[in-house]
């Protein structure tokens, strides 16, 4: 039972990180029907920025909580700027082009960013300091849940609630939904859809950067390639849950996290990806729109 609980929590943590990244994929897809393959790179860049900031701040001898906070904020700002810039230079000029063009542009962006970081920093793994402090109240349960896992779960939950409220109740949230449903009509009610699209990229990039900082802290090392792997997994999770659907992205991520965790725990870690992607294939065969994908009826 304890082993099961371990795997369950491990899957939940993993799924949470996937969810933080998958949200960016799904929101961007929801708005402009583009698979932003460079999104995983944003997560990686978030982790790198946090590492740089944390290293500098450690030299000044700040305490851990402030380092974590400042590093996260700087990472989020940088990631948002990257997301915004990528959209401006790689996708916006291609908005009226055939759908394959922005997709290829996205893959190009992904390769470019990976190699840029690989060359500018290093291609080897670099250790990442554990920025997440040990919580005293978790000490009795430290065999079951680590502080970093706890932090990941709490942060993800907060981000999810924040995003849900933002999209449901704020003006920009409603504008995002309107733009996703009918761009031309959105323009006709006075929505500047370029701003909405930019905002979506900022939002997605920010959550990905938070995911990057947390997972790097949790695992303890990063390299320029982590974004690619995590990006593919998060993308799988988004498709699993129904791309374009925000609750779907979260559900898909958790299902994927658990599948991997249980497959690793009960069978073999070699089969982790086999199970993850078999699940994807099965879902796509039997429910092509994904777990929570939308099938709306529209009267004419």
């Amino acid at each position: 039972m304890e082993y099961f609980l371990d795997l369950f929590l491990g899957g939940l943590t993993r799924g949470s990180i996937y969810a933080l990244i998958a949200l960016g994929y799904t929101m961007v897809y929801g708005i402009i029907e583009l698979i932003n393959f460079a999104h995983g790179e944003i997560y990686m860049i978030g982790a790198f920025i946090a590492l740089i900031v944390a290293s500098v701040l450690t030299m000044y001898g700040l305490n851990m909580i402030s380092i974590l906070l400042i590093a996260s904020i700087v990472a989020v700002i940088y990631a948002a700027a990257y997301g915004l810039t990528i959209e401006k230079i790689a996708y916006k000029p291609l908005r009226k082009a055939p759908r394959l063009s922005p997709l290829i542009s996205a893959i190009g962006m992904s390769i470019l960013l990976q190699n840029y970081v690989g060359i500018a920093q290093t291609k080897d793994f670099i250790p990442f300091p554990n920025l997440i402090p040990e919580f005293a109240f978790l000490a009795p349960y430290k065999d079951t849940i680590r502080s970093s896992e706890f932090m990941i779960l709490i942060t993800t939950a907060i981000v999810m609630v924040f995003l849900t409220l933002l999209i449901k109740f704020t003006k920009i949230g409603k504008a995002m939904r309107a733009t996703a449903q009918d761009k031309q009509m959105a323009m006709l009610v006075g929505i500047d859809i370029n701003r909405v699209i930019s905002f979506t990229f900022v939002l997605g990039s920010s959550t990905a950067a938070i995911g990057g900082v947390l997972i790097a802290s949790h695992i303890g090392q990063i390299n320029f390639y982590i974004g690619f792997i995590a990006g593919i997994k998060a993308f799988t999770a988004a498709v699993l849950g129904g791309i374009g659907s925000i609750p779907g992205a979260v559900l898909g991520s958790l299902v994927l996290g658990w599948t991997e965790s249980f497959a690793t725990g009960y069978i073999s870690s070699d089969y982790e990806d086999v199970f993850a992607f078999s699940l994807l294939v099965l879902i796509l065969i039997f429910k092509p729109e994904g777990l929570l994908g939308k099938s709306t009826t529209q009267k004419v």
Binding site: K174, R177, A178, Q181, D182, Q184, M185, L188, K294, T296, T297, Q298, V300
Partner: peptide, 13 residues
Amino acid sequence: IQVPEGRRIFPIL
């Protein structure tokens, strides 16, 4: 302000 052809209500809103 335009009311376009086909009404174009945001269906999920």
